Simulated scan of single mutants.
Amino acid sequence: MFEDLRFYIIYLALLSSIIGFRFYYKLPNNKAKFILFIIVFSFLTEFVGKYFTLWTGLINFSVYNFYMLASFSAYIVLLYALFLKLEFKRIAICFLIIFYLFYFCNLYYFQYHNDTVFTNSFALGVVFVLLLSCCYFIEIFNSKKILNFKKSIYFWFILGILLFHVPFLPFMLAIKWFLIKNDESIFSLVLFILNLLMNGCFIIGFLWSEKRYNY
């Protein structure tokens, strides 16, 4: 019944991108514009992933595995740029280096098949982004930014990626370890709902944020 829901994710990413461009004037610097770039890149990935098999005859896992590398790198780089404390910046750099090393070691020695998702790398990426996001929220709650944090595009973007990745990780691992049945309808439904939550946060961020809080 819900098997085709995941194919509508592309429209969620497209809607977020359109609204992002509509409120482009609220993005005052490269750091803020980088968020819109990440969302547009997500839309392009969904577009290519949807038609990759039709165009090439190959399974599209390689598209999403590359997106995994690019997206988690982008999240970590963005959080690095947002940090004020030097120790948090250093942690972000270490996490990025470890993630790259793990990703390519996993690619060449463990999950080297083209017909599988790199769940190991995804899990590590989620853990790193979660920890760095906690550092970001700690900085916010210990500064004057706490008074207007809902008016920042950065808050809504980070909240969005957490609402998608953190719940999706145990769901994906449960499927991998056969703890739950790999049902196509359930998978598509969960994927669509989490993408709806994530893109909903992006859209709220573009609508509610104010330019002066997006520096």
Rank of each mutant, 00 (worst) to 15 (best):
134 C>R: 05
134 C>H: 05
134 C>G: 06
135 C>P: 10
136 Y>L: 12
136 Y>Q: 09
137 F>M: 07
137 F>K: 02
137 F>R: 03
138 I>Q: 12
139 E>V: 04
139 E>P: 07
140 I>A: 03
140 I>D: 06
141 F>I: 09
141 F>A: 08
141 F>S: 10
142 N>P: 09
142 N>E: 07
142 N>F: 14
142 N>M: 09
143 S>G: 09
143 S>R: 09
144 K>S: 10
144 K>W: 07
144 K>Y: 09
144 K>L: 13
144 K>V: 09
144 K>C: 05
145 K>R: 12
145 K>D: 12
145 K>T: 08
146 I>W: 12
146 I>K: 15
146 I>D: 12
146 I>V: 15
147 L>E: 15
147 L>K: 13
147 L>T: 11
148 N>C: 11
148 N>S: 11
148 N>L: 11
149 F>V: 13
150 K>T: 15
150 K>Q: 12
150 K>W: 11
151 K>L: 15
151 K>T: 11
152 S>M: 03
152 S>G: 04
152 S>N: 03
152 S>E: 01
153 I>M: 04
154 Y>C: 08
154 Y>Q: 06
154 Y>E: 10
154 Y>F: 15
154 Y>D: 07
154 Y>N: 05
155 F>S: 06
155 F>L: 06
155 F>K: 01
156 W>I: 00
157 F>Y: 04
157 F>T: 01
157 F>S: 00
158 I>F: 00
158 I>V: 07
159 L>Y: 00
159 L>P: 06
159 L>C: 11
159 L>D: 04
159 L>R: 01
160 G>W: 00
160 G>C: 03
160 G>P: 10
161 I>T: 14
161 I>R: 03
162 L>I: 15
162 L>M: 14
162 L>P: 12
162 L>N: 14
163 L>G: 14
163 L>I: 12
163 L>E: 10
163 L>A: 14
163 L>W: 05
163 L>T: 15
164 F>T: 14
164 F>N: 13
164 F>S: 12
164 F>V: 13
164 F>G: 11
164 F>R: 05
165 H>R: 12
165 H>W: 11
165 H>Y: 12
166 V>S: 05
166 V>T: 09
167 P>Y: 00
167 P>D: 01
167 P>C: 02
167 P>Q: 01
167 P>T: 03
167 P>G: 03
168 F>W: 07
168 F>G: 07
168 F>V: 15
169 L>Y: 01
169 L>E: 06
169 L>N: 05
169 L>A: 04
169 L>D: 05
170 P>F: 00
170 P>Q: 02
171 F>C: 10
171 F>P: 12
172 M>G: 04
172 M>P: 07
173 L>C: 04
174 A>I: 07
174 A>C: 14
175 I>S: 03
175 I>E: 02
175 I>D: 02
176 K>Y: 03
176 K>D: 03
177 W>M: 00
177 W>P: 02
177 W>H: 03
177 W>Q: 00
